[in-house]
Write a protein that binds this DNA or RNA. Structure first.
Lengths: 221, 221
DNA sequence: CATTGTGAATCAATTCACAGCA
DNA sequence: TGCTGTGAATTGATTCACAATG
């Protein structure tokens, strides 16, 4: 399944591995912002919940080496992972829903920091059209297909009321969106070639609370 | 590691299993809302990204049986999983940040549907104190410790600007909060017995885009 | 001397193949 | 016939122990 081409590792990496790499990436980027220079496998493990040994194996697997007694060079690590994951380019995003949630997402720095640009914001409320959220002028939802085509957007975010979510998803898939971030609590039905990710905070809560209540209040790693 | 007490499975389930159970739970709850009665392991697999065989093994492991040719009884499944995970009670949540994001979270139905109640909302902006977001009156952040104690809150949500996030986290841990949902892009430093979950939409994006770009546009499962 | 890098052992997850039942 | 339930094989992840090294 892996194939090496020349010196460059252009393989098809395992799902588990790429998933973990994104975690190392985000943590390391934040540590850099705090002024950190090197990062150890133990730290990466602590912040990601992944075993330090696994961290070392993973970084090794993508051909990235650290220095013993010190750790991994933070900036180089970020670059290496971004290169491996093909995240050197930026992606345009179509955001639908200009209410509180949409405004918050459009104003957040979290997406631009990772190379994602909210390029268009849509709504169906006439009052909101023409206003700006996070420096972007809100367009009418009817323009979605045209805009998505022009800006080559393959990522869409649904931040509408639940009742509109499926309808918006239909518009998005019709317009050629390939990945949907769904902030509503609706289970979207989409074609097989479109991927939906649900932003659901309760997922992690439920899992955590199980252990918290099991052990009766004491810590769990 | 597992121990059965009487007929009831009061074990300490594996992390992987509990994690998967929460996914089955959320999907099944949504399918019920769509009017569904039974759900098959294949459907659960499709919506959660988990192998159908694994789904069946998991449900079997918690002593839940389906009917061949039909699937699993949706309502019973929800009840069984909630019982196993100890999610029959409700949890009070302290939300800090009454801006766009905080308002969106407070108004969302996603938390109450899963047994989580946003019981208090805090901010440090005098203009916002006394206003209501999602039916809750905003209090000053100075009252956090008192309120958390009174309402027995162990879950906190940080929906402030990034600059305030660590400070809020400190207040929360000091007040006895055990689980923090962090909506900012700051890497929070907390005591070992406090668990932080970061709501970061880019995690899933990066992972997905890797495969999307690798295969050049064709579908992946 | 803290931390990387790895072999070997163990445990969990995935997958195949198919029997068994409504 | 469609879906559950499960043995057996395989693959991936975790953990232990420890050598190596900057």
């Amino acid at each position: 399944m892996k194939q090496e081409v020349g010196g460059k590792v252009r393989a098809t990496l395992q799902p588990g591995l790429t998933n973990r790499l994104t975690k190392y990436l985000r943590v390391t980027q934040q540590l850099i912002e705090e002024g950190r220079d090197a990062v150890s496998s133990k730290e990466l493990g602590d912040f990601t919940g992944i075993n330090p040994v696994q961290v070392r194996r993973d970084l090794n697997a993508i051909g990235f080496s650290g220095t013993r007694g010190v750790g991994y060079q933070a900036y180089d690590l970020v670059e290496a992972v971004r290169a491996i994951l093909g995240l050197k380019q930026t992606y345009n995003i179509a955001l639908v829903g200009a209410g509180n949630l949409g405004s918050a997402i459009a104003s957040s720095t979290i997406l631009p920091k990772r190379g994602f640009v909210i390029h268009d914001v849509f709504d169906n409320d006439g009052d909101k059209i023409g206003r700006t959220v996070g420096n972007i002028v809100v367009k009418h939802i009817d323009e979605l297909k045209k805009s998505v085509g022009e800006a080559d957007e393959i990522i869409g975010i649904i931040a509408t009321p639940s009742a509109s979510a499926q309808e918006v998803a239909n518009l998005m898939t019709d317009a050629g969106i390939r990945v949907i971030l769904n902030y509503t609590d609706v289970l979207l039905h989409v074609p097989y070639n479109v991927e939906v990710h649900r932003i659901d905070p309760t997922a992690q809560l439920m899992h955590t609370l199980y252990y918290l209540t099991q052990v009766g209040g004491e810590a769990a790693s």
